[in-house]
Computed example of a mutant assay.
Amino acid sequence: MKIVRSRTFTAERAWGALDIANMNGITTRLHWTDQPYKWHVNDGEEVFAVLDGRVEMRYREAGVEHSTVLETGDVFHASIGTEHVAHPIGEARILVIESEGSV
């Protein structure tokens, strides 16, 4: 059993993570960041839930870039092949569920 107080979690570097669970190759990790990530495509699907803060999520569909601001409580699902990048607006804490070893 584990209880995680996400609002108090910080990392030593942007996108530092606390591993919460690995369920048959699907990882659940809590990330802290105040810096953008990088454009990437995951090996599988990804669920990205903003637990604290705000995040501008940029993604490309058919080569066209889109952007939306995710508020605390919002969830972004990246299907296989979705190119995307997260830009926090200030500090953010994000729960990410994805295949083990994904980018």
Results as ranks from 00 to 15, higher is better:
N22D: 14
V47F: 13
R54P: 03
A62F: 12
V4Y: 09
K38I: 06
R93N: 00
N22P: 02
H40W: 13
I20E: 00
K2L: 08
N22T: 06
E45C: 09
S6P: 03
V75D: 01
F76R: 07
T8M: 11
A17K: 13
R13F: 11
F9R: 06
I80G: 02
P36T: 05
V4E: 09
T82S: 10
V85P: 02
G53A: 08
A21C: 07
W39G: 08
W39I: 07
A62M: 12
V50Y: 10
G25V: 02
R60N: 09
A78H: 09
H40E: 10
A86W: 11
N24M: 14
V50H: 10
D34V: 02
H31W: 06
R58D: 07
G101C: 03
T82Y: 06
G53P: 04
K38M: 09
V103H: 09
K2P: 02
A62H: 13
Q35P: 01
I26R: 13
V69L: 14
V47Y: 14
N24A: 15
H31R: 10
S102A: 10
S79W: 11
F9S: 05
V75T: 09
P88A: 02
G25K: 06
S6A: 12
T33M: 14
V75G: 03
L70G: 02
F9L: 07
D52A: 13
W32D: 03
G25Y: 04
T28V: 08
V55D: 00
I89F: 00
E65M: 11
V47R: 14
K38G: 04
E56R: 15
R58W: 09
V50S: 09
E12K: 15
V85M: 15
E56N: 11
I89M: 13
K38V: 07
N24R: 15
T10R: 15
W39M: 10
E100D: 06
G101E: 01
R54K: 15
Y37L: 08
F48Q: 06
E98T: 01
F48A: 05
K2I: 07
L70T: 03
T27P: 00
G44N: 08
E56A: 13
A11D: 07
V64W: 10
R54Q: 14
F9T: 01
W15S: 01
A86R: 07
K2R: 14
A78M: 10
E61M: 08
I97C: 09
E83R: 13
N24Y: 11
A86Y: 01
D52H: 10
T10P: 03
T8P: 00
S102Y: 01
P36A: 11
E46F: 04
T33F: 09
R13T: 08
I20F: 00
R58Q: 13
L95Y: 04
E100T: 00
V103A: 10
V50I: 12
R7G: 06
I20G: 00
E12P: 07
T72Y: 12
A14Q: 08
T10M: 08
L30T: 00
A92M: 04
